[in-house]
Amino acid sequence: MDEDALPDRAPSSAAGGPSVGGAANIELRHLRAYVALCEESNYTRAAVRLHLSQPALTRTIQQLERHIECRLIERTSRRFELTEEGAELLAHARRILADVDTVTAQLRSRAAVEVGFAWLLPTTWLAATRRRYEALGGRITLRRIDDPLAALDARSIDIAIYRGETQLPGHLESRLIATEQRILAVAANSPLTTATDLRWADLAGYPLVVNVVSGTTHAESWDQRDPNRPIITCRNFEEWIELVAANRGIGGAPAVARTRAPHPGVVYLDIPDAPPTHVYLAWHTTPSRAVQRFLAVA
């Protein structure tokens, strides 16, 4: 017998044969192996195409025959030929696999990517990214969270948007998506509201309110640091703006805060030489296909 032929053994209900309801055990791998074998008309070539050993392919086809309780391939050393049942199964198998592949691709294209952010999304970037991603059939869901990087690390979100320079662990990657002008936030009753010609260095000694989780401005944001400078810490934007309004200290924020986060107790001031702030995306180094598609349009 040709080494490419199956052993001439008819399916049996004896030991190793199918049980009642055996057809329910047919898996996509059986159908994919069978279609590949039929298209190649050769076990060796089909095994190479499927990245299987030839014995493994032989066992897979034998399993399929046992499950459906009929012979699919005529055993001959001279030619590859399907039985009548084999030809019928081939037609159905191709249709089933095509349907599965189509619906899988459609569902993957519509997969939602969950984007976590702490505060003040870069709206122009988000609108453009959402438009491009949804044009591909995908969906973006937004989740406000105090620490997006921690949520990303825990895999409770797919993408983190964050500001500030942060050393990421090796299993996360990042990409700069925006550079923003930095402005000064002070209490409405602060003498700084009427100051003129303020420079960034002039602010190095004032008490500073720092959002230690997702803020953009820290003591290290000044080249010349006052070791005795009072630092008032908090853990989210809402706490930060209320502390500034209470005149506990000054703060730094991206310019978008002026229109997106107005507060009756806070005045935003332009400081011409203030260093800019940066916005980044972060994701796992082994992203899902949906995340890959998102990154391609982001």
Rank of each mutant, 00 (worst) to 15 (best):
D2L: 12
L6V: 02
L6Q: 01
R9H: 02
P11Q: 06
S19E: 11
R29D: 14
H30K: 09
R32Y: 01
A33Q: 02
V48L: 15
S53M: 02
S53N: 08
A56H: 12
R59F: 09
T60Y: 05
I61T: 04
Q63P: 00
R78P: 00
R79Q: 08
E85R: 13
A87V: 01
A91E: 15
H92Q: 14
H92R: 14
V100E: 11
V103F: 12
P122V: 08
A127L: 11
G138M: 07
G138F: 07
D146F: 00
A151P: 03
R155Y: 05
S156M: 10
I157R: 13
A160R: 08
R163G: 14
E165I: 14
Q167T: 12
P169K: 09
G170I: 05
H171A: 07
E180R: 06
R182G: 09
I183Y: 05
A187R: 02
P191Y: 04
L192D: 06
L198W: 09
R199V: 06
R199H: 13
W200T: 05
A204D: 07
L208I: 11
V213I: 14
S214L: 00
G215S: 05
E220S: 15
R225F: 00
E238H: 12
E239P: 01
E242R: 14
V244F: 07
P254A: 04
R258W: 11
R258I: 11
T259K: 04
R260W: 01
A261E: 02
H263D: 11
Y268F: 15
Y268I: 13
I271A: 06
A274F: 06
P275V: 10
P276F: 04
W283S: 14
V291H: 04
